[in-house]
Amino acid sequence: MTRHATGSFEVTITPEAQAAGEGDAVPTARMGLFKTFSGPLTGTAHGTMLTVGTPAPGKAAAYVAIDQFSGTLEGRAGSFVLLHRGTMSRAGSELSVIIAPDSGTGALAGITGTLAIEVKDGQHRYDLSYSLPTG
């Protein structure tokens, strides 16, 4: 059975390495991520994000990231990994965040699902659609 957990999170992004891109190459960067989740998903996530391009209207950009979440989901303690893939172009943007298969630990072992992110008025919100094994 698929369940939903919705809430908010704060994110701190720390630049770790940047390259302007030589010749016609686009700029790249590596960033450290730290997130604090509240709501039914309560805890922290540490991760790394790799970016390419210029994240600005009318410009193309893309990123991949891996976050290791640790905390509780509706009272169940454990951890899991979130895999991100995002693109931005003149045609619009696309974001996919999934829970890495077999990455759940503790009471979150066997978790599967996806995470939707909405940023509105500077606030980050999540909608975690997930399933956990029964029994």
Results as ranks from 00 to 15, higher is better:
D127W: 06
F34T: 06
T105P: 06
K35M: 06
T51I: 06
A25S: 14
K59M: 07
E118H: 12
G122W: 01
M1R: 12
V26E: 09
V52K: 13
L83E: 03
F80R: 05
S131G: 09
R125D: 12
L50H: 13
G53V: 06
I13R: 15
A116W: 01
S103P: 13
L115F: 02
I98T: 14
G92I: 10
V11T: 12
L33E: 03
Q123V: 11
T2Y: 15
L73I: 00
K59T: 03
H124N: 15
R90D: 12
L108C: 01
S129F: 02
S70W: 00
L132K: 03
R30V: 14
I98Q: 14
S79L: 09
T28A: 07
T112I: 09
S38R: 10
T44A: 11
F69I: 08
T36P: 00
A100M: 11
D24W: 11
Y130G: 11
T36A: 09
A19D: 00
A65N: 06
A91G: 14
L82I: 08
V81E: 13
Y63E: 12
V11Q: 14
A116T: 04
M1E: 14
E74A: 08
G78F: 07
A60P: 06
A62P: 03
D67R: 14
V11P: 10
G113Q: 05
T48S: 13
H46S: 04
P133M: 00
I99F: 07
T48Y: 11
Y63D: 12
G92Y: 04
L115K: 07
F69K: 11
M49R: 11
L95G: 04
S129H: 09
P57F: 08
K120I: 02
F9Q: 04
G7S: 01
A61T: 11
P101R: 01
F37V: 10
T28N: 05
G86W: 01
A61L: 07
T28L: 05
A109K: 01
V81A: 10
M1G: 13
Q68G: 07
F9V: 07
R30N: 01
G86V: 07
I66C: 09
R3Y: 10
L82V: 03
Y130N: 13
P40E: 06
T112D: 03
T28R: 12
G23Y: 08
A65E: 10
S8R: 02
R3A: 13
R76W: 01
F69Q: 11
A19K: 08
A100V: 05
A77S: 15
V81G: 06
L33N: 04
P15S: 08
V81F: 05
G92E: 11
K59S: 09
V97Q: 03
L83P: 00
V11C: 09
Y126P: 02
A65G: 07
L128H: 02
M1Q: 13
A61K: 04
L83M: 12
Q68W: 11
E74F: 00
I111D: 05
M31L: 15
T134E: 09
R85W: 09
V52M: 15
A45C: 08
